[in-house]
């Protein structure tokens, strides 16, 4: 999940308007940008969609790290296409957020100065080629768990962005699993590498869903507004139940000694990740947090002359066209 711990904003709107708004949502209607909406709904969505967009963009970095070192030309082309998709996902989402009255440049600045966040998962390093397998399989896999229900979210532009994104995500997960299958069928050293990648990414992947929100007022509000469709625990359970058999298929061991099938609930019992670590990462103290933001900052600064230059060129072209008319 790319949007974690999104606080919902309190709303101080006319109770009558609020009730009518809630009735529209309950009836399954989509809310569109020009419709009346509570201030809290608008602000919470900007935060959530913005965080999701930033995650897609920052999420390109750990994988971009391996484009020049992919083991074959085919793997390189596939990874490049995957990372390019993530850029597209970021753009779809920024546009969806912009319909709520915030600009993309503003959101970028908020990411860079720490007012907005990105998913904790991208603060972890990608140390070996097997990490490209683990990221596609586990990270995109966890993202899909969250994004599929969001296709039905109440805000029209967000739902439409999610539909486009979901169409592209299953390629991402499959290419990752394909890398894992190849490595697990390879030499003992390659299989060890795959196991090591799973060991390092398992708990960070579970963190993607965020801590239990069963008691959270923010989550209850977001669920009522249909901008959050499932509880964090529900999605995490679903992810574990789906992923454990896949690990078994690969012949890999999930790094959790407490993992056991629970017949009664029809799902696995599993260990919680270290939530102290999660909160540290979210605060910007993850192993690669500083590097990620520094890389984004550099891209933003180095790109300034291109952004400005193309605007100047467009203005000049317009002026000469007008003069010729």
């Amino acid at each position: 999940m790319y949007a974690q711990m999104v606080k919902s904003e309190a709303t101080q709107d006319d109770p009558e308007k609020l009730a009518a708004f809630q009735a529209r949502i309950d009836a399954g209607e989509k809310i569109e940008p020009k419709d009346w909406m509570p201030e809290g709904y608008r602000k919470t969505l900007i935060r959530q969609i913005g965080q999701h967009a930033h995650s897609e963009i920052v999420g390109q970095l750990p994988e971009g790290n391996w484009i020049t070192r992919a083991p074959t030309l085919e793997r390189k082309a596939i990874l490049l296409a995957k990372v390019q998709d993530e850029a597209g996902h970021g753009l779809y989402l920024y546009c969806a957020a912009e319909t709520l009255g915030v600009s993309r440049d503003e959101m970028t600045e908020m990411l860079l100065d720490g007012r907005m966040k990105y998913s904790s998962i991208f603060a972890y390093p990608t140390l070996t080629w097997a990490d490209m397998g683990a990221v596609g399989w586990l990270v995109d896999g966890a993202a899909i768990m969250n994004q599929v229900p969001l296709q039905r979210t109440s805000f029209g532009p967000y739902a439409r962005a999610m539909i486009r994104i979901c169409k592209e995500e299953s390629f991402h997960q499959r290419q990752g699993f394909d890398i894992m299958m190849k490595m697990c069928a390879g030499t003992p050293a390659q299989k060890r590498m795959a196991q090591d990648a799973l060991n390092r990414f398992w708990f960070p992947a579970l963190m993607m869903f965020g801590p239990s929100d069963a008691e959270s007022k923010h989550s209850a509000q977001s669920m009522a507004w249909k901008i959050k469709m499932n509880s964090n625990d529900e999605l995490r359970q679903k992810f574990v139940d789906q992923t454990v058999p896949q690990a078994e298929y690969l012949g890999l061991t999930v790094p959790d000694e407490t993992l056991a099938w629970n017949e009664e609930k029809g799902g696995y019992d599993f260990a919680e990740p270290d939530w102290d670590e999660f909160f540290e990462v979210l605060k910007g103290n993850g192993p690669c947090s500083a590097e990620r933001i520094a890389t984004r900052q550099k891209a933003w600064d180095d790109g300034a002359w291109v952004r400005e230059g193309l605007m100047a060129h467009a203005a000049k072209k317009r002026a000469s066209q007008m003069a010729a008319e």
Partner: peptide
């Protein structure tokens, strides 16, 4: 209608649209 994007002019808008909305 498939979505929106930022571009300095029409020519670049079409180039960006190619990359953002017709990768498949």
């Amino acid at each position: 209608h498939v979505g929106s994007l930022h571009a300095p002019d029409a020519e670049m808008a079409i180039k960006h649209a190619r990359d953002v909305y017709t990768r498949r």
